[in-house]
Design a protein around this nucleic acid. Structure first.
Length: 810
DNA sequence: GACCTGCTGCGGGATG
């Protein structure tokens, strides 16, 4: 307490609070001029900790000029923190200016902020990138003393995080005295986070402070009385039991994994809602106003429950939430901990969480995740090197601000951790790309953005370049969508173009919690009326997939392999596994189990890889190519996060050969080059690098236009400059993203020489779920044989019937 | 380029 000035101590006292130990530690670190990183669970006054030292300094000297820059990944959070900070500032009578600056800020206020910055500015990574591109950036930031990065764990390892790291490196040059403060949830790799925050990319530059953990969460698995589904992912079977839970809580958040699932679960809950409980819906495609309404109702404590996607993973803390329900598998322990942490911000009240698996395999994953939460084993991929596309955008931003020499910029950007290992040659290639598009594109005038002055400085070719750059700042690339408007009513949100293309007048669909009738399209808006139709469609989005962490995958395999764990599983699941044990065998903790069996004149091969869907899709493509060459006539494959199934005319014999590591050779290169996955990845990189501009002064490009021009450039580059910087960026993104080659490589290495092959005369119990996926799932570039769609009951019966015959087999 | 498992996030400036 002694480390705070009197006005602060008496303010804490007047609120009946005393500062947390970590808050004082942060102030002391600041006094010593140290950078610091606070890692603490949600709540617990984390944000105030970040600002306390700045407020103390400003209370002693409030000379004009920007003192502290706060950066949040969410606009809404910046606004909320602004409101929260005003309270202590006013109550302590501190004389200082506090403002937000995001894309929502009106132009006149932006102008004023440039000329006369507030003491504390709250903003986003994108807005910061914009500020840095101004020619007066040096004047704006010269006085800067402190940068606070909130929710740093949500930024590191992403392209937004790469961009922010680069911007901070620039700030360090404009304001060398500047101190950095990071605020983060608990992460699996705190050292990397320290390095990311550091102005020198060195871990020990940043003082690590750990905040006290709140009470430990009580997490349980919903053991439904219903029959557990063999496949499907919506979890609707358990909703009556979920609803029952809602009747006994104050406020609950129900997390689901997809927007379509959110709509469905919401709809079903309302059917069950005989008590007329106030239940709301929240996801990323709902109109901003709709979402703000829901958030405000949550803050007031007016809602009993809200069904949400990761749209509520971060952000404002709601004290009233006493239960978090996760419907469907959490896909990672850290993600689950983050979601559970959204409840129970009352001091020392343990939060409660309930996991609702939608099928049998998901039971295993949920159970494994609960064990992970109890042991506190965090997961998630560690940060990878920064994207070259992001670097290109940043370099152009720097040029928009002031001409520079290559040497000074190289030394500047390599101070940012994501680019610390960037070699000079690659940097020069990126710079060359920014300058004129690179060797293969230099003939086009539109790609000439920089020229070299007589003093060896790079300068933008015209002010138009800066204008266009500023209109296209940011690393988030989205699908094109159409707005959905209720006739004579408000905009409800947006749905993707392709979904709209599949609608005919009179079709009904569920959106924003409403049953709607499709009337037609006017300009870029879908017009709808309320409907009473049946069999409504549900909009699907080409969103990302929540990645299945390797850690959780390891836990699932461990649980499967050791029957002593099964007592923690619902009886239906334990029985399913026991029957599998009799009919076939269970996957071991290490190695790979492959089953093969005939069915309906075809040969099936089911591999229990547990490497996640992205890796499985790449594997499926490689396997079918190889089987083709072996003369096995493969016909198709289907993949889940856990399993892959391939079917064809003949059964494979030599599985060691089939799964050998050299699979990642020529086939991969060839397929990747043609694959639409890579084209999509390239498009994103091209947009981020500024090769394709989404917006021009006065017009916006449609998604179709962007795709066409990106495909053209992609083909040109592949032919004429295969080592182009954007193709390198694309391969790097794909390797850990949509094709997940890193993980596939690790998998193939791990199973080498450890493949168990079971030849069966029929489908096994464990193989039933993946066979039920056939015909329901779109896989990569290969069309699925819909005729194969299975009759669930028949299939299950057949698998379980294997029981009698099998004993004699072994 | 889709559809039955597919998240989240941001983004100009000057003028009338």
């Amino acid at each position: 307490m002694s480390s705070l000035p009197a006005v602060f101590t008496s303010w804490f006292k007047s609120r009946g609070w005393s500062p947390h130990p970590h808050q004082l530690k942060m102030v002391e670190a600041a006094r010593r001029g140290e950078h610091s990183l606070l890692i603490a669970p949600t709540g617990g006054g984390k944000t105030l900790s970040g600002f306390l030292a700045s407020l103390v300094e400003l209370s002693q000297d409030n000379a004009p000029g920007l003192h502290t820059l706060y950066i949040s990944p969410l606009k809404a959070l910046a606004v909320d923190i602004h409101r929260n900070l005003e309270m202590p500032v006013q109550e302590m009578g501190l004389d200082l200016r506090l403002e937000t600056r995001t894309g929502d800020t009106p132009a006149n206020r932006r102008q004023r902020q440039r000329e006369n910055p507030p003491h504390i500015l709250l903003t986003t990574p994108e807005s910061l990138a914009l500020l840095i591109s101004y020619d007066d950036a040096d004047a704006i930031f010269a006085s800067l003393k402190c940068i606070v990065v909130d929710e740093a764990h949500a930024l590191i390892g992403t392209k937004r995080g790469d961009q922010l790291a680069l911007c901070m490196a620039r700030l360090q040059k404009l304001a060398p005295q500047c101190r950095r403060v990071g605020l983060s949830a608990t992460v699996a790799w705190p050292e990397e986070l320290r390095a990311w925050l550091s102005p020198t990319a060195r871990t020990d530059d940043v003082h690590l402070i750990k905040g006290g953990g709140g009470a430990k969460a009580k997490v349980s698995l919903l053991t439904t009385k219903e029959e557990l589904p063999w496949s499907g992912h919506y979890g609707l079977h358990a909703l009556p039991e979920v609803y029952e839970e809602l009747r006994h809580v104050r406020t609950a958040i129900l997390f689901v994994n997809t927007r379509a699932q959110a709509e469905l679960v919401f709809q079903e809950l309302w059917h069950l809602n005989e008590d007329a409980l106030p239940i709301a819906l929240h996801h990323g495609s709902l109109a901003r106003e709709q979402r703000r309404k829901v958030e405000a109702a949550m803050a007031r404590g007016d809602l009993r429950a809200v069904v949400a996607t990761s749209s509520l993973d971060l952000g404002i803390d709601w004290a009233a939430v006493d239960l978090v329900i996760q419907i469907g598998p959490p896909k990672g322990v850290s993600r689950l901990i983050q979601r559970i942490g959204r409840a129970g911000h009352q001091l020392n009240t343990p939060s409660r969480a309930l996991l609702v698996p939608a099928n049998r395999f998901e039971v295993l994953e949920c159970r494994a995740a609960i064990d992970g939460v109890e042991e506190g084993t965090l997961d998630g991929a560690p940060p990878r090197p920064g994207g070259l596309d992001v670097l290109a955008q940043h370099i152009l931003g720097l040029a928009c601000s002031k001409p520079f020499t290559a040497d000074e910029i190289y030394s500047e950007v390599t101070k940012a951790a994501p680019y610390a290992a960037l070699d000079r040659q690659t940097f020069d290639d990126v710079l060359r790309f920014v300058m004129d598009g690179g060797y293969a594109l230099k003939a086009y005038d539109r790609y000439k953005r920089l020229f070299l002055t007589s003093s060896d400085r790079y300068e933008i070719t015209s002010p138009k370049v800066a204008q266009r750059h500023r209109m296209n700042i940011g690393t988030i690339v989205e699908e094109t969508t159409l707005k959905v408007r209720l006739r004579g009513g408000p905009v409800l949100g947006e749905i993707e173009e392709y979904f709209v293309n599949g609608l005919e007048e009179g079709d009904s669909f569920i959106f924003a919690g409403n049953l709607l009738r499709f009337e037609g399209i006017r300009e870029l808006t879908v017009l709808c009326s309320r409907a009473a139709g049946d069999a409504p469609k549900i909009p699907q989005y080409m969103g990302g997939r929540l990645p299945f962490t390797t850690h959780l995958s390891d836990r699932v395999r461990e649980m499967l392999a050791d029957p002593s764990h099964w007592q923690d599983l619902p009886p239906q699941v334990a029985e399913w596994l026991r029957i599998q044990q009799w009919c076939s065998v269970l996957p071991k903790k290490d190695g790979l189990l492959v089953e093969s069996f005939p069915r309906n004149q075809k040969e099936y091969l089911v591999a229990y890889c547990f490497a996640g869907r992205n890796a499985h899709q790449t594997l499926g493509m490689l396997l079918t190519r190889r089987m083709e060459r072996m003369g096995l006539s493969p016909l198709g494959f289907v993949a889940s996060d856990y399993v892959i199934a391939v079917w064809g005319l003949h059964a494979p014999r030599n599985l060691g050969e089939l799964f050998s590591e050299d699979m990642l050779g020529d086939d991969l290169e060839e397929w990747m080059a043609e694959s639409s996955l890579l084209r999509r990845t390239f498009k994103n990189a091209a947009v981020i690098a500024g090769l394709i501009e989404r917006k021009y002064p006065g017009q916006e490009k449609s998604g179709r236009q962007v795709t066409v021009s990106s495909d053209l450039i992609y083909d040109v580059l592949r032919e004429h400059e295969p080592d182009h910087i954007l193709l390198r960026a694309t391969r790097a993104d794909a390797a850990s993203g949509l094709t997940d080659i890193h993980r596939l490589g690790g998998f193939l290495k791990r199973i080498k020489g450890k493949i168990t092959h079971r030849r069966l005369d029929r489908v096994s119990p464990l193989a039933v779920p993946i066979l039920l996926e056939i015909g329901r799932e779109y896989v990569g570039d290969d069309a699925i044989d819909e005729l194969l769609a299975e009759n669930a009951n028949e299939l299950i019966e057949e698998a379980m019937a294997g029981l009698e015959n099998t004993r004699s087999l072994f």
